[in-house]
């Protein structure tokens, strides 16, 4: 008797195999998740420049536009990074949606005896992800396109940031989103390692500790900025 694969008539490519299976689609989620996580670490560290004053932060923001010159044209690095991140967000979301639909369909009848399954961070991955997706839209409208920013001064991110966080909603939305991010990264980092096959009995504890440290560091780093504005430390 031959194995199932040998009886297949078509010979699917590696990408098609991955996209067509739950394991492969989860690997896409894990890869895009890790990519976005790396970006977030850089973003958080860049944000801390706010504590060195307007010149430091505004200079850093201007440098991001000239990064890669003269090999790259003005803002090419920035737009490359934006394209990669947009692709990552879309792929992450599409996979999450498709896999979630499948997961829900896999248990058409629930249990009469209700009980919480899995940790809070794990259970809130889906809606937490939706919250983060909506926050990204708000965040871009607020501090990139400046559409909803109360100051909206092009080329002056420091002043725009202070203006946004000085409003109750600007700070509030940001703080809620960062708490959602904390939970998402807390489960997501370890989960990505498990999905990509990087976990083992020996590494499990270290990966879980790394996930907690990473989630806490990102959240504290990001939250320090609105808190500093709201307390008047940064003005």
């Amino acid at each position: 008797m031959t194995m199932a694969l040998a009886t297949r008539t078509a010979s699917p490519s590696a990408l098609r195999t991955l996209w067509g299976s739950t394991v492969g689609k989860k690997a896409v989620m894990a890869t895009t998740g890790v990519l976005m996580l790396l970006y977030l670490v850089a973003h958080m560290l860049g944000n801390l420049k706010v504590f060195f004053g307007p010149d430091d932060l505004n200079g850093y923001a201007a440098w991001l536009r000239t990064l890669g010159q003269p090999v790259l044209h003005h803002e090419w690095f920035l737009w490359t990074a934006r394209s990669v991140l947009l692709a990552a967000v879309v792929l992450h979301g599409v996979c999450a949606y498709q896999l979630s639909r499948r997961d829900i369909a896999a248990r058409p009848t629930g249990y009469a005896h209700k009980r919480h399954r899995a940790s809070y961070a794990t259970r809130t991955m889906r809606w937490g992800g939706v919250i983060l997706g909506l926050f990204i839209v708000w965040h871009i409208l607020d501090l990139t396109t400046l559409t909803v920013n109360p100051r909206a001064q092009q080329g002056h991110p420091y002043e725009n940031l202070v203006a946004s966080f000085s409003t109750w909603y600007g700070g509030g939305v940001y703080i809620v989103a960062m708490l959602a991010l904390c939970l998402h990264v807390h489960h997501g980092f370890w989960s990505a390692a498990q999905t990509l096959g990087a976990n083992s009995a020996r590494r499990d504890r270290a990966l879980k500790i790394t996930a907690t440290v990473l989630a806490a560091a990102l959240t504290i780093g990001f939250l320090s900025v609105p808190v500093a504005v709201m307390t008047g430390l940064v003005r």
Binding site: K25, Q194, D204
Partner: peptide, 29 residues
Amino acid sequence: GGCTNAGECATACPKGIPLPSIAAMNREY
């Protein structure tokens, strides 16, 4: 359904199959 790494399976397993077995299968896949 797919795996969301909730870990409920390994907690319920009467034979103690460890959760990292799923990571090992993902690696193989």
